[in-house]
Each structure stands twice: as C-alpha cells, then as structure tokens.
Design a protein around this nucleic acid. Structure first.
Length: 820
RNA sequence: GCCCGGGUGCCGGAAUCGGUAGACGGAGGCGCCUUAAAAGCGCCGGCCCGAGAGGGCGUGUGGGUUCGAAUCCCACCCCGGGCACCA
C-alpha cells in the first residue's frame, strides 16, 4: 500500500471490485442464518444530478447499512427513483424533451453518482415509479382502494394552483401557496378523486404512540396535522324552515351563551335560506368575494366579515332564537360547516359580535373573582371557571363539566359527544400528464368502472401535447381516452387525471422486497421477511406528507390482508439540511454547492466524512461555516485520512520485534466500544472524533518506536462504514486481508480492557477545582480524603478556615466545604 | 397566537443518572523535515489581570435548589421549524 493517501487511485479501483464481487446484494437464500435488516433511504427525485441534501442523507443511511452488514446482518439496502411528477413535465414544456427521456437521463446520472460515492446499494432491485411495470401496480393498488370505498370522487372546494394548472392536496399547500412553485393557491369547486384517509385518522393518531424511535418533532407534527378534537355535535333548528342543522363544538358547556349562529359561506343551505328570507341580494356579493379571494387573503383578513341571512336558529338547550349569519371565517371543511357562536368565550366569535353589535352573554365566571361585565370585556374569556346562566348546570366547574353536558345532550336527544379531526381526505388526482393514469373508465350507462386488472397498466401515451392551457394533456389527446366500457362494451372515456406522486411513493418500500414480481405489487412472504423497515432515513420535509401517507397505505394493506404489520417504519432518522450562510441553497440565490465536484477533487470518502463529521446528523449543516470561503482548500477529514494511511503503513512496517503498549490496546478497545455505541445512536460526528483520537495515539506510539498493528486493524474496520474506500485499501492492501473489510466482522471490545485502572481525581475546595491526582479506579473514600488533605494546593486554598463538610465521590472527586 | 426544537471559544461542535467546561476538527500563530513545494510531524490556542507563579471571570439574561449547575426548577430574551379563523 502506498503510504500516501490518493483517493483518485483507490476509489475507482474498489468500486469496480465491489461490483464484480456483488458484496452488497441482499441474500434471499433460505439457508442464510443471518438476521435480516432493511436499511431504507427515501428514494430520490431525479431532477438533475445529486445535490448536497442527497449527499448528506445517503452518507448517513449508507453508514448504517454497512455497519449492520459488518455486525452480521443480512442487509437489504435498495435504491430507486420517485420518477413521476411535475418537474419532468415542466422540463418537457420548456425544452421540448419528452418527460420520460428527461427522467431517464437524470436517473442514469444519479445512479453513476451514487456508485461513485460508494453507496452500498443492491442494484439488482433498482426501480423507478414511472416504469410501466411499476405503475401497473400503483394502479392495481388504487383499484383495491376503489373496491373498498377508500378511493372515491366528489365535488368539493379544492386547492388549485394556477401556475401548475392542477389541484393540490391539502398537505401540498404551504401558507396558502403551492409547495412546488410558490404560486398563490385558488379555491375551486371541482370533482376530484380522494383517498379516504379520514377513516384512518384515529388509528394513525393512536399508533403514533408506538413510534418511540421517531424524532419527537415529527410525531408532534403528525399529531397536529391529524388534529383530534373532542366535543359534541348539537342539533339546532332553523325556525323559518324547521330544518335541523348540526354544529360541532368543543365547548358544549358554553351552549347557554350562544347569541348567534354562523354558516360557512360555502354551506349549501346558505343560498336557499337567503333566497327564502329575501336577503340574497346582500348575501351573494359576500359569497362571490370569498370565493374569489385567495386562501391567504381570506385567512389574513382580520375583519370579521359576515351577513345576516334573515333567518333564526333555535338553541336546543333553552329554546332561544338567535340570528343566523353567513361568514367566511367559518370553514366548510371542518366540523359541519356551521357553528354556534359564543362570543363571551370564543375569541373569533367575540370579534364578530363586536363588529356586528351582537349581544355577549357570559356563562362561565372566573372562580372566586368578580362577575364579568359583558359590556366591559375586551377579549373572550376562554379559560376555566364556573358555569352560570346555564339552567341545571349552574355551579358546575368548567372544563370538567364538558363531558357532563355532552352526556346530558345525548340523553335528551339534542346532540351527542363526538370527535372531530382536522385531517381531510387525501386529494390524489392531478390534471397533469407525468403520473400514473387513474385506471377508471367513465361510462354513460355504468358510471365509474374499474379497468380490469389484466388490462393494467393503463399506459401513458407517448405523443401527448404538454403545453399548458385548456384541458390537461391526457384530456386533450385526440384518441387516448376513448375506450369501450369494460362492463357494457359501450362508448366510454378514460379518467384523464393522473395520480399524485405521493401515491407512487407510498408503496415503493414494499416493492423492493419482491423485485420484478409479476403477479402482484409484492409477495406477502417477501414483505413479511424483510419488513417493517429497520431504519428509514430521509428529510424532515416529509414529516407529514410522505410519512403520513405511507403509514395510511400500510394500514390499508394490513386490512386487505396483504401485510402483517401496521407501521412501516418503526425507526426514523431525519438528516438536517445542507444550507449556505443561513439560507437554503437555490439557483436564484446562486449559492448552490454540488457534491460531485467535491467527490472528484477530494474523493467520495472525504465528502462522506465532511457530512458526517460536521455535527449531529439531524442538525442542519451550514456549508459556509464548515467549509470556509475557499472551496479548493483541503478538507480537514482528508488530512486525517492522510494521517491514517501513514500511521497504518508505519504500523505494518513496525511489526517485527516491537510490542504494542498496553495503553494503546486499552484505547483501541475503548474506541471499539465507543464507536459502536455512537453508531447505534447515529452519532456519527462523535464516532469519527473517537477514531481521530485513536489515530493520534497511534502516531505517538509509533513515533516512540512501539508497535500499533492491533490498533491499525481495528481502525481500518471501524472506519469502514464511514469511509468505505479508504478502509478497504487499508484492509486489503495495507493489512493484506483477502476479503473485503465490508464483509468482515465488526470488532468486539474486550471488557477487561475498557475498565479504567486509574482515573483522574479532582480535589475541590468550596466547589472550586484546586488540585488533581491520578488514583486507582477502586480507591476507597478514606484514601481519597487523605490524598485531598495531603495536597499542598488544597491546604493553601483552605487557609485558616475550618472544613465543615467533606463530599467524597470516589474515584472522581473530593470536595471540602469550609466556613469562616 | 399555539406547539416543537435550540442558544457553549474566532468557527463546526464535545461534555447532560449534576462532579476537571471547551474532546475532536476548522481557521490562525510558531517550529521541525525539505534545495523548494506538496505530503508528513510537533507545539500554542475561552476572556481578563499578572513578567511569572498564580488568581479572577466564563455555557443567552435574571433568580432559585445544591457542597457542587452547561446539565435540575421558575421567570424572561433571542434564533430555527411546524401549525394557524380547526369552533
């Protein structure tokens, strides 16, 4: 082995050897006794070459996969591409390249880069969600959902991106803007396909409690997104029409404080009631304004706009008639689209009441305080208190009384306790070309008819027109949609929408278990063998979207009897983002740093080590701070690898005659233990620092003329998950091993050698460090005290004061407390 | 507004069953080796006072608990992220 570290020479060499030896292919041999481990990285989107985010995420995921292999697991570490989606189509519009072509070129580029980075993928399982043999099964799964009533079409107000010319799921709208292009989203009333994820809201929420190895923030985000609220449904009656209207409230204890009633402007009863009462002339403009306003404008408006409908609602608890309004602040999508308004105890209702000069009636009084004067109130009173003006419930303590009131409502038939969720059904149809076509035929006679399984996939046409405007590309295609109805044979048309790409990515993890399987999306026995995923790695930006959808899919697959578990990823690891100077990297800012030039210049191992050593894996990396201003400056980790090469080479030459010092053997075993523990907790940065400490100690030992071969062997192995090329060179060439370091057994520490024989004891006087001494690890208290009292520095610090207390924590410290 | 994270040297970060704060690395300075460069090796490195020995201060701010607090408790400030008229 060259003493000199030259990644440009060793990396291509080993890349070829590994490919030839096939060492990263997961074994399906039933006789293989090793336990299985599924190491999964979120599959990348193929827009251009790999970026820094990929480099960071996959460096961590690959380190885990390699570590698990060395620990004796039969590891499945697959790769594929989330290959459908808008960017391919937008590229087609912009440059005239077909989406399939653009996607294929990018996938090939990323595949080459992954190999160059030394990722230990099992390439035999590679997939792309845009391949017909993949989306065939996406469509097949859709049909199973459809049969179960979990995929359905309905007309509703939906989010429409005017720029991308398609609808978006709720989860894809960030602060009123399209998560892809940033355009302000509009509301449109359209008929669209939905997955009934709301049927699974409670299970999705309950099972969060089993995900104790997920980052807390992700669990919190999912809980908030599902947004469970306990409360009651209460039935009000419209006086003028006698129709019953339900409302949802979390505060049934405030029912006696209702002074008005409000419909969402989108509520179907509004138009009818207004016309009946002769107020349509005032109501219609409001509805028009609300409809045209963007979501953001609607939410940002601090005015409590609203119009009196001219009708009244009867409060079921006291028979009072209150005026009925229509107002944009009430959401059609949540609860029932209508609310009972209690201005005294709800902030929003309070603001509305003040604006419209409506009465405020206090029904909860602060305990022990002065009674609240409704006219003097400047804000709603929403905290706990005692119920008043509430009939038989007067004197009950709120919020404890909520359940009692709900139970009473139920008994009286005026309402019932219920639960409401913030989660909405998943809008999955898109008016775009580059996605899996929805396998449904619309027949004038038979309605929505499933495409028979044996006719899947419903293939995308190659000759679509991608230009924006008018209908979607599939709807505009002259022939594609016209088919015979699978049921009656009559003239019918295909559904011309495609599926959200998040449908594709909700089941790819299952497909990796049964690559190329032709009788279904996957074999149950394959999935049961490999799953659930042992370690899932990816960005926190998927905290809600992808992770929630995939959890939903897994539960549906479980209910269909297709898998034997209900949570796909018991362990989740989120890498931080790679940013620049405090801001995300972007083309428009011109601050993009690419990983591949770094790999070319300094080697894949240095790129990986930079990522992993920069800080905790889950923290963001600010490239400007860790790399400095000069991108051509030699990275510190590259220098370290150089020192490792020199030290290992020296250790090999030194072999004959010299002995390895006990202290180095101890440090080696301590390092094995520490690095193992760090890897188990994804603390790559501290693991690497421990390897650096070992390297430094080896250098000192070698310079003193002693041997360090044991340390060198351990170092090569411990380095393998982080810097696979350098470790392989050290192992096979430097240390003369025949087989790959990556299939060698992870070293074990010798317990006897990690127990410290001596430790540094510190002597404090009044909590301040005054002296220290090397002492045996099993020192007793008396001896420790005598050492403390024997210290000249301690004596000087005590002076003529009296020692009133002696704290002894053998063998770590003695603290003498003085007085006077 | 509500809910999560997080504030430690010039910088990335170590150390959280309370017990030597600043491991490891970067940037910087000095030196060795070399004709020279590269590569490699060694030393210094929180702030203040002091020639030095040494002393004082120091983990966002202010209190508290404790022999002892980066770590625990209370209040506050700042930064990042998520949600946001969810009844």
């Amino acid at each position: 082995m060259s003493r000199r570290y030259e990644p440009s020479e060793i990396e291509p060499k080993w890349q070829q050897v590994w490919a030839d030896e096939g060492i990263y292919e997961a074994s399906e041999d039933p006789a293989d006794p090793r336990p299985r481990f599924y190491a999964l990285d979120m599959f990348p989107y193929p827009s251009g070459d790999l970026h820094m985010g990929h480099a960071e995420a996959f460096s961590g995921g690959d380190t885990i996969a390699r570590y698990k292999t060395m620990q004796g697991f039969n590891v499945l570490h697959p790769i594929g591409w989330d290959a459908f989606g808008l960017p391919a189509e937008n590229a087609a519009i912009k440059r005239g390249v077909p989406p399939a072509e653009w996607t294929r070129v990018n996938i090939e580029q990323q595949a080459r880069s992954f190999q160059r980075m030394g990722m230990s993928f099992d390439w035999t399982r590679r997939l792309a969600s845009c391949d017909p043999e993949y989306y065939r099964w996406t469509q097949w799964l859709f049909l199973r959902f459809f049969e179960k009533g979990l995929a359905y079409r309905k007309a509703s107000p939906v989010n429409w991106c005017p720029n991308d010319q398609t609808v978006l799921a709720n989860e894809q709208v960030i602060q009123g803007a399209c998560e892809r292009c940033g355009a302000m989203v509009e509301r449109r009333n359209l008929t669209q396909w939905f997955f009934k994820i709301t049927d699974y809201a409670q299970r999705l929420l309950d099972d969060i409690d089993t995900l104790d190895e997920w980052p807390e923030r992700v669990l919190t985000m999912q809980r908030n997104w599902i947004g469970r609220s306990e409360g009651a449904r209460v039935t009000f009656t419209i006086e003028e029409t006698s129709e019953e209207i339900e409302v949802f409230t979390t505060r049934p204890d405030t029912l006696w404080g209702v002074t008005f009633f409000v419909f969402s402007v989108e509520h179907p009863a509004v138009e009818r009631l207004a016309k009946l009462a002769g107020t349509w002339g005032e109501v219609e403009p409001l509805i028009e304004r609300a409809r045209l306003a963007s979501m953001v404008d609607r939410e940002a408006a601090d005015t409590k706009e609203g119009v009196f409908l001219g009708v009244h609602a009867i409060n079921p608890v006291n028979g009072e008639k209150v005026p009925v309004y229509a107002a944009p602040y009430v959401l059609m999508e949540y609860g029932t689209g209508a609310i009972m308004a209690v201005p005294a105890h709800d902030e929003r209702d309070f603001a509305f009441a003040r604006q419209h000069a409506l009465p405020v009636r206090v029904v909860i009084q602060p305990p022990g305080g002065d009674p609240i004067d409704p006219d003097a109130m400047t804000e709603a009173m929403s905290h706990e208190g005692v119920m008043v003006n509430s009939g038989i419930f007067d004197g009950e303590h709120s919020p404890g009384s909520i359940a009692k009131v709900a139970a009473w409502l139920s008994e009286e038939g005026r309402g019932e306790a219920t639960v409401s969720f913030r989660l909405r059904d998943w809008l999955l149809s898109r008016q775009r070309y580059w996605g899996a076509p929805i396998p449904i035929v619309h027949c004038p006679a038979c309605g929505e008819v499933a495409v028979p399984d044996d006719e899947l996939p419903v293939r995308l046409p190659d000759d679509a027109d991608f230009q924006l405007g008018g209908d979607s590309p599939l709807a505009r295609h002259p022939t594609w949609k016209h088919v015979a109805c699978p049921s009656c044979g009559g003239d019918a048309v295909r559904d011309t929408d495609t599926m959200d790409t998040f449908v594709d990515s909700s089941w790819y993890l299952f497909r990796y278990c049964s690559p190329g399987y032709e009788d279904g999306p996957f074999r149950r026995e394959d999935v049961d063998r490999w799953m659930p995923v042992g370690q899932y790695t990816g960005g926190v930006e998927h905290a809600i979207l992808h992770l929630l959808y995939t959890r939903f899919f897994t539960k549906v697959l479980y209910d269909l009897g297709m898998v034997g578990f209900t949570e796909p990823f018991p362990k989740l690891m989120n890498q931080g983002q790679v940013i620049y100077d405090g801001a995300s990297m972007s083309k428009s800012k011109g601050n993009i740093v690419e990983p591949m030039p770094l790999v070319q210049r300094w080697g894949a191992d240095s790129m990986r080590l930079i990522m992993l050593f920069a800080g905790p894996f889950e923290d963001d990396i600010d490239w400007k701070l860790i790399a400095g201003e000069d991108p051509n400056r030699r990275p510190g980790v590259h220098s370290w690898l150089g020192r490792v090469f020199a030290a290992v080479a020296d250790a090999v030459e030194r072999e004959v005659g010299a002995t390895e010092p006990e202290s180095l053997r101890r440090l080696t075993h301590k390092t094995i233990k520490g690095v193992t523990e760090d890897l188990d907790r994804f603390r790559f940065n501290t693991a690497i620092s421990k390897l650096q400490v070992l390297t430094n100690e080896m250098r000192a030992v070698l310079d003193a003329g002693d041997a360090a071969l044991g340390a060198a062997r351990a170092l090569a192995q411990l380095l393998a998950p982080f810097a696979p090329y350098a470790a392989e060179e050290l192992w096979r060439v430097g240390l003369g091993e025949a087989a790959s370091v990556h299939t060698s057994s992870w070293p074990r520490h010798d317990r006897a050698l990690v127990v410290e024989e001596t430790v540094t004891m510190v002597f404090q006087v009044d909590g301040k460090l005054r002296d220290k001494a090397e002492v045996p690890a099993d020192i007793d208290e008396d001896f420790a005290l005598s050492l403390a009292h024997g210290s000249v520095k301690v004596a000087a610090a005590i002076g003529d004061r009296e020692v009133v207390k002696q704290i002894v924590r053998a063998p770590k410290l003695v603290n003498l407390v003085t007085k006077g």
